[in-house]
Amino acid sequence: MTADPYPGYAWLREHDPVCPVDDPNVPGRTWLVTRYDDVRACLADRRLGSRAPVNPDPHSPGLSNLDDPGHARLRRLVAAAFTPAAVSRLRERTARTCAHAVESFAGRGRADLVAEYTRQIPVAVVHDLLGIPEAERAPAADVLDMWYRAKFQQPRDEVKLAEMLAYVRKLVDRKRSHPGDDLPTRLIESGALTGDELEVMVMTLIGAGHITTIQFLGTTVLRLLAHPGRRAALLGGGIDWSRAVNELLRLDSPDHVAEYRYASEDMTIADARVAEGDVVLLSLASANHDPKRFPDPGVLDLTRDARPHLAFGHGAHACLGSHLVRMQTEIAITTLFGRLPDLALDIPGDEIDWGYAPTFRGPRALPVTFTPREPMTPAPPAGATDRGRAPRHRAASGLG
């Protein structure tokens, strides 16, 4: 993936805002939409459905691949776990996880912040949300590798898909035998989901809960390393965190395109004639750099009111986890730079290796140097436990 795809997006917005593209993985004609107004309108247009005519996976479609009423039914079942109040209950555990991760490398004077920090935090937080104890979790690198290769890489890696499904099934089996005060237990006890739906829901929550947040934390660290003055103002309280995170999301949308949309009838988008059955790709990243909506879109302005950004989508499929992402970002950044204030990138910025094309964008590695710190003794990482009730019966607890 090119380190800077935005000049290409700019050309498309100006000359071919709804253009046909070749996608060998999708039958029929595919369109790419790049202007802000068109992308936002399409995200809310019920004529563009999210459910594929043929489901390629050997299980039920997830939240992002369903239309109403099925989508609304599943979304209602999990929405309460992602409210601001619910997310705030994860703050303390998230802070301990971030502190523990920083201490693991603070004494060395150098680290790869992707491998050792920005990849670790989202995977830990989403497993906390699901009530999975530390000892039962797959390593963060393995979790990312499974989900990317099984769900987003083309062609799909069938071996990784099998590994991912096995991991999720073991996780669900564990929650059946070790219920706790957590989302999977509540879903199981509600009886509102079939076994297949429950597995797909947990799979969706883990995937959506980490894969884009890893990219966003990486780009956020990179931006703040490059702008020490703005970083100091943010960490010193001179800039509102909510406004700053919105601008960082706008500038570096971790999800470059929304999930596929499928035209349910003939329609016109801008001047393009889209036929029934055509696939429509909505470029969130290009929309968020549209100068007609955001003046000087390539400039980082942490005081900008970027709230209309589309990094979390729009409409019925707007991201449920937006509050979770904001919370993680604030804690991860304040913890990292608070402990290691003289962090510096250890390679030229133009040598950053970017991935994971074409869906996501974030640094694959962030080698940094800093003054080594004397070790602290933080609380252990906040791996969730099944607490609040006794197991109904004994069973093997390992996820393998």
Rank of each mutant, 00 (worst) to 15 (best):
G321R: 11
S322A: 14
R273A: 13
R261E: 05
D301Q: 03
F312S: 05
D255I: 13
Y262G: 04
S322G: 01
F312W: 14
A316T: 13
G313W: 06
A306K: 10
G298W: 02
R250W: 06
V299D: 03
E259A: 13
L282D: 02
G321H: 04
A287L: 04
A311V: 07
V274N: 09
V280L: 05
H289N: 03
L249G: 15
R307E: 13
L251C: 12
D296N: 11
E259K: 05
S286D: 01
R273N: 00
R261P: 01
R273V: 11
G315F: 10
A287D: 00
P295G: 07
P308D: 12
V280W: 02
L282I: 03
H317T: 10
H314P: 01
Y260K: 10
E265R: 15
V299R: 14
A272C: 03
H317E: 04
V280Q: 08
V299L: 08
A318F: 09
D255Y: 06
A272W: 08
R307N: 07
M267W: 00
T268E: 15
V279P: 00
G315P: 03
Y262K: 02
V274L: 05
R307G: 12
A311W: 05
Y262A: 03
Y262D: 07
V279Q: 06
L281G: 00
M267S: 01
P254R: 13
K292H: 14
H317V: 04
R250P: 13
S264I: 07
R261L: 01
H314Y: 14
A258L: 13
H314W: 13
S322H: 14
N288H: 09
P254T: 10
R293V: 10
A316P: 11
C319Q: 08
D266H: 11
L302W: 12
A306L: 05
A306D: 09
V257A: 14
D252C: 10
M267Q: 10
R304M: 07
L320P: 03
G277D: 06
A272L: 09
F294W: 03
A306S: 15
G298F: 00
H256G: 07
P308V: 06
H256E: 11
L320G: 06
L248A: 10
A311Y: 11
A318Q: 14
H309N: 14
D305L: 05
A306I: 08
E265M: 09
A306G: 12
S253Y: 12
S264V: 13
T268C: 11
S264D: 14
P291A: 07
V280P: 00
G277Q: 02
A275F: 03
A275C: 04
L300N: 00
H256P: 00
E276G: 13
A272K: 04
H314N: 08
H317R: 01
T303N: 10
A318Y: 12
H256Q: 15
L248I: 12
L282K: 04
D278A: 06
D278M: 11
L302H: 14
P254K: 11
V279L: 00
L302F: 07
S253M: 07
D296L: 04
R261D: 02
A287P: 04
